[in-house]
């Protein structure tokens, strides 16, 4: 079964790179550009994992995370928050609201792919030669 990853991010180039990486790792990819769109998309198609930026227009990442956790139907959905580096409070707040993991920007591709695979219980890509 192919897992579905939803990228929730308002920066188009980061959406491009994350989509590329997730597809390369063998996942189907959904994209939402803001918090409201993310929740709307989830109503019609439930992803297995959400890569969720904190700073989003309209409804921020925390509010989206809270909405996901408040809905029992989405209990199994994993959430990785994308936070700004060094913002310890952002990280803790995300985990408090029920995120499963967090990655700080600027993240490494390897790190985010590994975390996604780990949470979805699939083997990560083979390590490459540096």
């Amino acid at each position: 079964m192919t897992h579905t990853v939803m990228v929730v991010e308002d920066e188009p180039y980061i959406v491009d790179s994350l989509s590329f990486l997730m597809k390369q790792a063998g996942f189907d990819v959904l994209v939402a550009r803001d918090g409201d769109a993310a929740l709307r998309t989830m109503e019609s198609r439930m992803p297995d994992l959400v890569l969720l930026d904190v700073m989003l227009p309209r409804r921020d990442g925390y509010a989206v995370c809270r909405a996901i956790r408040d809905n029992e139907a989405w209990e199994s959905v994993k959430v990785i928050m994308l936070t700004a580096k060094g913002r310890e409070l952002d990280r803790r707040k995300g985990l408090e609201l029920g995120a499963d993991d967090y990655v700080t920007k600027p993240f490494s591709n390897r790190e985010i792919v590994d975390r996604a695979c780990q949470l979805l219980g699939v083997p990560g890509p083979e390590p490459r030669e540096p």
């Binding site: 980061i14 790179s17 390369q24 700004a84 580096k85 920007k105 600027p106 993240f107 591709n109 490459r128």
Partner: peptide
């Protein structure tokens, strides 16, 4: 500014790694 800085760095780093790894 700090948010923008991190966003730009994130996408540059990510694409550099993609090019390197593929």
């Amino acid at each position: 500014s700090s948010h923008q800085l991190l966003t730009l760095l994130t996408s540059i780093r990510s694409f550099a790694e993609i090019l390197h790894d593929n």
